[in-house]
């Protein structure tokens, strides 16, 4: 047991060092790599703090998806970092290009502000009691009535279902926002940045069934153990993105209506539950009928998994592909005009 504090201190030092380096490092590529390792260290911390649900999600999202998105954007924003041949300075993408670079005063003020903030936060945390129950007692007390055996799933899909519903709305909104800035209505016919590779497609062909199996397994597991709709959805999203990368057709080849319906399925399933329970004369809003709770939760979770998977995959595919053909055409046009 005496090893635990040493592990803790090592882990915390690693977390702080990695985040310090990734913010300070001048090379953005390295920063993105460090960001992925930051996500991995965080998921180690989740495991250490007995939060396996979060560890699963973090490893898939924080390290996996966010990392892929960052790299894809990096490639588009800074195509050739630091080695531009034709004299044009690589344009770093800045919020306010007119403003001058921050001077020393800016840094001093920022340091004072942040030191104050850190002091305040540390004092606040120091005053917190070592042991406290929070809502753990209540949750375990009502767990039997919730329809599932895993407390986190019970909180997400029963006690605080409203939050989960809204969270699916946030996910949907992010995709709608991205689509609003594109010239297309969906990820249909977005082609991969690179031509599919035989080895990759062989690998993905082999892996995809396992990943689908893992999706279903995680979904089913959520009932009584760490796992559930979100983790399963992320694995599904990863599968779909891999399939797209291997040129094997995924969200980009889905018929528009099927795609649209799977986007909104999770959000609308909860909407339907809310509608029915609000309309029914003697029902409580967003409450499951007692005997149906387990079945309904499983149903909602499965539908939510599909939605999360398809939304995240579409988001990732759109970001990974950059502007798709539109970008290619635009770039060619620009080149042509510059040549003249």
């Amino acid at each position: 047991m005496s090893l635990a504090p040493i592990f803790d201190i090592l882990l915390i030092t690693a977390l702080l060092l990695v985040s310090w380096r990734l913010l300070g490092n001048s090379d953005l590529f390295q920063a993105a790599v460090l960001f992925i390792s930051f996500g991995l260290f965080l998921s180690l911390a989740w495991v250490r703090l007995q939060a396996p649900d979060i560890a699963l999600a973090e490893a898939a999202v924080g390290a996996g998806l966010t990392g892929a998105l960052l790299f894809a954007t990096l490639k588009i924003v800074e195509p050739k970092q630091g080695r531009s041949k034709n004299g044009a300075q690589p344009k770093s993408c800045r919020l306010d290009r007119a403003a001058e670079c921050p001077g020393r005063m800016h840094y001093i003020l920022a340091s004072i502000f942040v030191l104050g903030l850190a002091g305040l936060l540390l004092t606040a945390v120091f005053s917190l009691p070592d042991t406290a129950n929070g809502l753990a007692g209540l949750t375990s007390g009502f767990l039997a009535q919730s329809g599932v055996e895993h407390p986190v799933t019970a909180v997400l899909l029963n006690f605080r279902l409203y939050d989960t519903w809204l969270e699916l709305g946030v996910l949907l909104l992010a995709l709608l926002g991205v689509l609003g800035t594109r010239d297309r209505l969906g990820p249909q016919n977005v082609t991969a940045a690179q031509p599919p590779n035989p080895v990759l497609s062989w690998l993905v062909r082999g892996l995809a069934p396992f990943m689908l199996l893992a999706t279903v397994y995680l979904l089913w597991l959520g009932d009584h153990a760490p796992g559930g709709a979100f983790q399963a959805g992320v694995v599904l999203a990863a599968t779909l993105v891999l399939l797209w990368l291997a040129g094997l057709g995924s969200v980009v080849r889905m018929p528009r209506h099927a795609w649209l319906f799977s986007l909104v399925a999770g959000f609308s399933a909860m909407l339907v539950l809310a509608l029915c329970t609000t309309l029914a004369p003697d029902a409580v809003a967003l409450a499951y009928p007692q005997s149906w709770a387990k079945a309904l939760i499983l149903l909602l979770e499965s539908v939510a998994t599909i939605s999360i998977g398809v939304i995240l995959a579409s988001l990732t595919v759109l970001v990974l592909a950059g502007e798709g053909e539109a970008n290619g055409a635009g770039a060619a046009e620009t080149d042509g005009k510059n040549g003249m």
Binding site: L135, L138, T139, F142, N158, F159, R160, L161, Y162, D163, V284, A285, L286, A287, Y288
Partner: peptide, 13 residues
């Protein structure tokens, strides 16, 4: 005031 899902305040929303 309405308790969503029939769970009273500290537990539910």
């Amino acid at each position: 005031r309405v308790e969503l899902g029939g769970w009273a305040a500290p537990l539910g929303i």
